[in-house]
Design a protein around this nucleic acid. Sequence first.
DNA 1: ATGGTAGCACCGCTA
Length: 265
Amino acid sequence: MKIASWNINSVRHRIQLVARFLREHQPDVLCLQETKVTDDLFPAAAFHKLGYAHHALHGQKAYHGVAILSRMPFKQTGVQDFCREGHARHMGVTLQNGLELHNFYVPAGGDVADPDANPKFAHKLDFLQGMEKFFGKRKAAARSNPVMLLGDLNVAPLEHDVWSHKQLLDVVSHTPVETRLLGDAMSAFDWCDVTRHFVPPDQKIYSWWSYRAADWAASDRGRRLDHVWVSPGLKGALKSQTILKKMRGWQKASDHVPVMVEVDI
DNA sequence: ATGGTAGCACCGCTA
């Protein structure tokens, strides 16, 4: 089966792009972040029409918001309160085939990489620690189950997850404290980073390019902020991963492109 | 060293 994660930056504004993506790539499940819409205004009919009949929505007005759209039935396993601010940043489902899916939108963290001066950065660090704690507690019981965590984690952990390691060490998303906390969250459950399972660490790969660049493709100053992780037992079932860079060049593109993984389950 | 863009809301906030 194919599962995709995409920070869509307003699902209503980009509904035509989602339709094109779903028609061209046919994932079984699509996890969205930054839907920017309350559940009552979510464009559910468009997804039904495209063959995605099963919806789990957790939105809010104007900011944040996550959603899971699926061709396969699932049961909702709830929204963890990872977020002390009450933002819509996580939701989980368990698919009919037993796969447990967690869709995350980690706080971006503002501009200043100092938790004392910037409450948004402090919130991001707490949120990452909350992820570590939640899955750490379940390690013994759930680590052997098929579990997948994906989403916009807003951290580019490795040197070649950013266009310039040196120039971004002080930039929120690539600071040592963030990459350390993301690493802690990964070890808490022995998560496998699916993109890096397939792409060697010395090869640059990104999932996000700023809107502020005059020519995003020419400068190619990207970061890998979007991730798919799987539990250790699923590692052997991984078939492929794709970061759909060309979609950054579509008309009305999101600043993030989808990450899609293929798993044999 | 600075400011550049985008979406939503509402005339600023968040990214």
